[in-house]
Simulated scan of single mutants.
Amino acid sequence: MSSPLLEILDLSVSVEDKVILDGVNLTVHPGELHVLMGPNGTGKSTLVSAIMGDPRYTIRRGKILFEGQDITEEKADVRARAGIFLSFQTPEEIPGITLENFLRTARGAVDGKQPKILSFRKELLQQMKALDMDPSYSERYLNVGFSGGEKKKAEILQMLMLHPKLALLDETDSGLDVDAVRTVTKGIHSYLNRRNGLFIITHNAKILEGLDVDVVHILEGGRIIRSGGKELISKITNDGFGVLEKEGWFHERLSSAKN
């Protein structure tokens, strides 16, 4: 097996002295698609934000390794240049900067050199067409006046244009209609290959249809209480997270966490 792309080792994270994650361990290899699920408020967004280096989150214990390098103390821009990308639940509007200029600047920061305008624009329009985005959006200020669906498509567009080694998608499918979810799924499928990795937080199994999911993690009480294959998604979708409690997973793992 190839060397890990991402390793999370005994990670404990707090926000304003409140511990949100406590003892998270997971490993993502190149070519793998991991899904993170769990009840609301269990720390799913905290985990991906900590991986990305959001300064609002304090690492109390543990390590984050990316391609074997310890990035636990690195700033977000360093992690982005290293090849980590985070798609936000609620993308920010940025007046004064067009979508195209934003992407060209970001691509230049990641690659270390500015892309040629014509070739970049050609690639951008091709990706926008694949995502059913109006090409005029490239000339509009980033996310300003975009519908919720267009904002989420713009996030996937960024992922496709920046070619990250690891993409973290935080409920990118939330608020999307069925057709938009299919389009986003198509974009995800286009992105994933044997050299990169994908980590998706979702409550909607629809976005995972047609994708080869390698590992599903269930987060509860600040810890990953169970990991399994794609069949775990069906179990949760059909029976809810309560089925894991009935099977003793919540009680067993949370008890061990306290001891």
Rank of each mutant, 00 (worst) to 15 (best):
T183D: 10
K186G: 15
A80P: 07
Y191M: 09
T42F: 09
G210M: 08
G108T: 06
F66D: 11
L254Q: 10
K75V: 14
I224H: 01
G108L: 01
V144K: 01
G242Y: 07
G83H: 04
E245W: 11
V15L: 12
F250M: 12
K235F: 06
L21Y: 02
I233E: 02
K116T: 13
L5I: 09
Q69D: 13
S234E: 10
S174F: 03
A80G: 10
K116D: 15
L21H: 06
E150Y: 01
V243D: 15
R194G: 14
M161G: 03
G23M: 02
G68R: 01
V184L: 13
I188M: 13
R79Q: 03
S190G: 11
K44N: 07
R223H: 04
I51T: 02
L118C: 08
K230R: 08
L232G: 10
K151N: 04
A82D: 06
D111P: 01
G149S: 05
K235C: 12
N143G: 08
E231T: 09
D179M: 05
Q127D: 02
L65E: 12
T90L: 06
R140H: 12
R61W: 00
A50D: 02
F146D: 02
L160V: 09
S136F: 05
H29P: 01
E209A: 09
H203D: 04
H189E: 15
L21E: 02
E93K: 05
E7G: 07
Q127T: 03
V184M: 13
Q114E: 13
L131D: 00
L157C: 06
V24C: 01
A205Y: 03
L118D: 15
A154Y: 04
G43T: 05
L21M: 06
I225C: 01
T172C: 11
S119E: 15
I20T: 03
P55K: 09
K113T: 05
V215K: 15
S147Y: 10
R104L: 05
D10P: 09
N204E: 14
D179C: 04
V216P: 01
K75T: 13
V19T: 11
K129H: 07
F146I: 05
D17I: 00
F146V: 08
T90N: 14
L36P: 02
Q114W: 08
G43L: 02
V35S: 04
H203P: 03
S14M: 07
K122M: 08
S45Y: 00
N259F: 14
L176G: 03
K246Q: 15
I59L: 12
A257T: 06
E171W: 03
Y191D: 11
V78Y: 13
L192A: 11
D214L: 10
V184E: 14
I200D: 10
S49C: 00
E32T: 10
L9N: 15
L192F: 03
N196W: 02
A180G: 07
V78H: 11
K129W: 00
V213L: 10
G68E: 04
S227A: 09
T237I: 03
D239Q: 10
L162Y: 00
A205I: 07
F146T: 04
M161F: 10
P4N: 08
I84C: 05
E245Q: 13
G248E: 15
L33N: 05
F250K: 08
T58F: 09
G41H: 05
K122E: 14
